[in-house]
Computed example of a mutant assay.
Amino acid sequence: MPVTILIVDDSKLARIVAGKAVAELQPEWQKLEASSGEQALALMGKEPLDIALIDFNMSEQDGLELAREIRALRPDMPIAIITANIQDEIIAQAREVGAAFIPKPVTSEGLAGFLSGAALKLRSSQG
């Protein structure tokens, strides 16, 4: 079954970098991009999304708020918060909403553990 990952970041360059890192690890996965939380939620209503990578610092709403909204809609969706703002408080808040924490810049090495865990979770939930 094809997997679709949503990359949410208000920076086009950051979405490209994250998309390339995902493609290195999971070239067969489909990638969708959103530049805001509002756009991400709109896509969730239209597309079958499996995984979300969400930037923490976005202009309209922060990534943790968006992660909470997604979690309410999709309790089992693997979610990761990506940010260059590496603070214990943000890491703790990400864990509270059941999201992984990935430091920026996003690399395939930084994503590997999260994506393999997400893929395993998706396979086991479909079985």
Rank of each mutant, 00 (worst) to 15 (best):
N57Q: 09
M44C: 10
L13Y: 09
A23S: 05
S59H: 06
R71D: 09
L43E: 06
A18V: 03
D55Y: 03
V8G: 13
G117Q: 14
L115V: 13
E60G: 03
Q61L: 13
V22Y: 10
A84G: 15
L6T: 14
L43H: 05
D88Q: 13
G19N: 07
E24F: 09
E89L: 14
W29Q: 12
P103I: 12
A99T: 01
E33G: 10
A112H: 12
E60N: 03
A40V: 06
I51S: 05
A42G: 10
G113W: 03
A52L: 09
A84T: 15
L64D: 05
F101V: 05
I7A: 10
D76E: 14
A94C: 06
V22I: 12
N85D: 08
L64F: 04
V106F: 13
S124D: 13
K121N: 11
R123I: 03
N85I: 00
Q87A: 14
Q126N: 09
G37K: 00
I81Y: 09
R71F: 01
Q87V: 13
A52D: 05
K104Y: 06
V22K: 06
L6E: 11
I81C: 07
I79D: 00
I86D: 15
F101N: 04
R71G: 11
Q93M: 09
L66R: 04
G117T: 11
F101G: 10
K121I: 09
Q93A: 12
E47H: 11
G110P: 05
K12D: 13
E69K: 04
D88W: 04
A42W: 05
L49M: 02
G110W: 01
K31A: 13
L25C: 07
K31Q: 14
I7L: 10
A84V: 14
M58T: 01
A52T: 10
G63K: 06
A94E: 01
